[in-house]
């Protein structure tokens, strides 16, 4: 099935939900409205047999050339259909003012950890996620490291670190 067909099917079912669709280096991508994420992915899973959720990630587009900051984040869902051997990337735009999106944990078990990682790294909240908390960083950590405005080398130690410069015997 070609991307246009699939986009057409989704368009028939969910009016206005598709913002754009494209093929780039063999990756078929459909951008959908944020409100419809759950419904569209549910439809794709149930009726188009996209049974694997390979990955959920986000991209921070702050400062990306030729792009306005209003839609700062993009969430990328990477679906795979074992039956049809087909891959599909679903994207949605998240505004900086409203950093929430519907969770798809009830559709795929794997979404649990993937969404937690996106929350940890970008601070995007997933509504209806059962256990939304940091996964890779520790609770004391302030900020979200993969955002473009988090400094690359800003460390936040959990414990007091030794001063290695001093000679111990002199202390």
């Amino acid at each position: 099935m070609k991307i246009m067909e699939l986009a057409g099917i989704i368009k028939e079912k969910f009016e206005k939900s598709i913002l754009s669709s494209s093929v780039f280096y063999d990756n078929e991508t459909i951008v959908i409205r944020k409100e419809d994420v759950f419904d569209v992915i549910k439809f794709l899973k149930d009726e188009q047999s996209f049974d694997f959720l390979m990955d959920v990630t986000a991209v921070d587009y702050k400062g990306y050339p030729d792009r306005n900051d209003e839609t700062r984040f993009e969430i990328v869902y990477n679906l795979f259909s074992y039956k049809n051997n087909k891959r599909l990337i679903i994207k949605t735009l998240v505004d900086e003012k409203d950093l929430t999106v519907n969770s798809i944990t009830s559709l795929y078990h794997s979404a649990d950890w993937h969404e937690r990682e996106v929350y940890d790294m970008f601070g995007i909240k997933f509504i209806n996620h059962p256990n939304l908390k940091r996964i890779l960083m520790y609770d004391e950590f302030v900020g979200h490291p993969l955002r473009k405005d988090y400094p690359f080398k800003k460390r936040q130690p959990r414990i007091n670190l030794r001063d290695v410069g001093k000679n111990e015997e002199e202390e």
Binding site: P145, F152, K153, Q156, L161, R162, V164
Partner: peptide
Amino acid sequence: YDNYAVVDGIDKIIP
């Protein structure tokens, strides 16, 4: 790994 996550040398933690 000179970045936000990694301790630059365990001698900052233990001798």
